[in-house]
């Protein structure tokens, strides 16, 4: 079976100024390759500075890679840093929902913007879709009129999820989206994510440092170390028998 998302030899480096004319290149990602099947979850773990967040941003299109391809359903959507992705099938959920939602817009307006920018739906169709999506993530249709400051942290993460889901994506990238939540709220959110996956075959790329969550949620695991793939394979197999030193260290603590 063809994998839903395929990433081939992704490279990314940042350019920083080291002097007046000198520039320093820092290689953040080196030859990253992996596949995610439909309805599967890939977890990415690694220490700080291992390039997890950069990888998430590149996947979602917020940053561009220098080299390498990203393929969705067999079609190339990014090739050597040139993105040709208008349909936005890969959506990103940020770490801190209080900062990733525009404080000046109501939830409804924000979701409406998403739809009107990417689809050709009429106003009524959009309203219907927004209400449907809000109920899908466990919010009420009344929340349409609410501003972000009126929600608690857990609810805001649901709003962020609604924003990601409203365009019917194939892949959702969760960049540490679960780590800032309280345990019981996190349990609720994880339940919601798993339910959505079961219902509509979503794929997740889960970036976190919460190992027990990785074990519970993911099918495959990618361990990053200094921008390189240290280990890649089935989650349970890696947890049972870690081969790389990074993973051994992470598990030992």
């Amino acid at each position: 079976m063809q994998p839903l998302l395929k990433v081939q030899a992704l490279n990314k480096s940042f350019c920083t100024r080291a002097g007046v004319f000198k520039r320093k290149h820092a290689q953040v990602l080196t030859d990253i390759s992996f596949c995610v099947g439909q309805g599967e979850t890939l977890a990415i773990i690694g220490e700080t500075g291992s390039g997890k967040s950069t990888l998430a941003r590149v996947l979602a299109g917020a940053d561009h890679a220098d080299k390498g391809q990203i393929l969705l359903n067999g079609e190339t959507i990014e090739d050597d840093g040139i993105r040709c992705d208008e349909c936005r099938h890969i959506r990103l959920i940020f770490q801190d929902p209080t900062r990733s939602l525009n404080p000046g817009l109501t939830i409804g307006d924000m979701l409406d913007d998403c739809l009107s920018l990417n689809t050709e739906l009429t106003q009524q169709q959009r309203d219907k879709k927004i209400k449907h999506t809000l109920t899908r993530v466990g919010l009420l249709t009344e929340h349409y009129e609410y501003y972000p400051h009126m929600f608690s942290g857990g609810q805001l993460q649901r709003v962020a999820l609604a924003r990601a889901l409203i365009l019917d994506p194939k892949v959702v990238v969760l960049d540490e989206a679960l780590s800032s939540l309280d345990p019981s709220v996190r349990a609720q959110t994880v339940n919601l994510l798993l339910e959505l996956q079961r219902e509509s075959g979503l794929s997740y790329v889960l970036i976190t440092h919460h190992l027990s969550l990785v074990k519970h949620m993911s099918d495959q695991l990618l361990v990053l170390n200094k921008g390189k793939v240290a280990e890649y394979g089935n989650t349970l197999a890696i947890f049972a028998e870690p081969k790389s030193r990074v993973m051994q260290r992470l598990l030992n603590v």
């Binding site: 801190d96 900062r99 990733s100 817009l105 920018l117």
Partner: peptide, 26 residues
């Protein structure tokens, strides 16, 4: 530089839309 602007950009907003809907109201 705020997160919600990059989120809005990922929604497919053009530069003008980012300015009028994202930056100026705030």
């Amino acid at each position: 530089n705020k997160d919600y602007i990059s989120a809005f950009r990922l929604d497919g907003a053009s530069k003008w839309q980012i300015l009028t809907r994202g930056v100026l109201p705030n």
